[in-house]
């Protein structure tokens, strides 16, 4: 597969044929994960820096495992409590890391645009593992891959995103990816958790969860940041759970065979009913394993592509 990209900053930069090709390739990598010996020498001698300036368990571990299964070396930076958490030294940190000659830097940062910023400063590949409210492209790709394996094609499919859209990088990236693939996307959230100009987005907006669930093929629940209540966006978590918590009864309104997704970590009993999360309709754990395959694919593409070799 031809891979002309230096960085992965948002889904925006990918075409839909590229995304589908990436999914095909990911299926090969997924096979490695089911082997007895889960390691190939593909990226031997390559190094990947994990720069996570925001708490993260699953995404960081997922990248770490993905790199190691391809025999790349990974290095993590302890950033908790450092000045980097505030983003003040990002340029200096980036230049310092670059001087250590990594082949790629995977960055998670609390500020929108941080990955773009680093990509402009550095000549190694930057993979955005989530920046502020802006983008989380690998999450969207793994969500897409999870459904790609299940569905025969994306046309005529409907995906519903429920929850805090305004402050969600997952929502922004999912919307970009799924609309690119021809999926109709619905959003369901209280007005206070929707972007002000959501009417300009290529989505349909619902404020009633029953209505929103009618006839959809998949529902992605978004994590509710519990501090939204303090910042005056919600009266109480209880009221939020009553209006927007996904329960078994909602699955009766969907198209038969509809699935539930959640990017994690979940607040059981708030945005998703605990039983439903563990139910057979749930793809939540499948998302996790798809994540490793997608990240292996991306690391492979970035670290072996022609643009990388030219450097």
């Amino acid at each position: 597969m031809d891979w002309p990209h230096k960085d992965l900053l948002s889904v925006d930069q990918l075409t839909s044929p590229e995304i589908l090709e990436l999914f095909q390739l990911a299926q090969n990598f997924e096979e490695i994960n089911s082997r007895l010996v889960k390691k190939t020498p593909t990226l031997k001698g390559k190094s990947v820096l994990l720069l996570f300036a925001e708490p993260s368990t699953r995404t960081k571990t997922s990248f770490d495992i993905a790199a190691k299964r391809l025999s790349a070396d990974t290095f993590s930076l302890a950033t908790k409590g450092s000045s980097l958490e505030k983003g003040e030294d990002l340029k200096d940190t980036g230049l310092t890391l670059q001087a250590m000659q990594p082949d790629a830097i995977v960055i998670r940062h609390s500020q929108s645009g941080a990955a773009d910023f680093l990509a402009r400063q550095l000549h190694c590949s930057i993979i955005n593992a989530g920046d502020g409210w802006h983008a989380h492209p690998t999450q969207a790709l793994l969500d897409g891959f999870t459904l790609y394996k299940l569905w025969e094609g994306f046309r005529d499919r409907t995906l519903l995103l429920v929850g805090d859209i305004a402050h969600s990088r997952v929502a922004r990236s999912d919307i970009e990816l799924f609309t690119k693939l021809g999926v109709s996307v619905r959003l369901c959230a209280p007005r206070t958790l929707l972007p002000r100009h959501v009417a300009d987005w290529p989505v349909s907006v619902y404020t009633d969860l029953d209505e929103a669930c009618r006839g959809v093929d998949a529902i992605q629940c978004l994590r509710l940041q519990l501090e939204r209540q303090q910042s005056g966006l919600l009266p109480s978590l209880r009221e939020y759970a009553t209006r927007f918590g996904l329960r078994k009864k909602h699955m009766e309104l969907t198209r038969p065979g509809a699935k539930v997704l959640h990017p994690g970590p979940m607040n059981r009993g708030i945005e998703i009913d605990s039983h439903l999360a563990d139910d057979t309709d749930s793809l939540i754990l499948d998302q996790v394993s798809s994540g490793i395959a997608i990240r292996m694919t991306l690391l492979y593409l970035f670290l072996t592509s022609t643009s990388q070799r030219r450097e």
Partner: peptide, 15 residues
């Protein structure tokens, strides 16, 4: 400014 650009970029907007 709060508007289509801030919505898309995921930046806090000023109405």
């Amino acid at each position: 400014s709060e508007g289509p650009v801030s919505d898309r970029l995921g930046l806090r907007g000023v109405p």
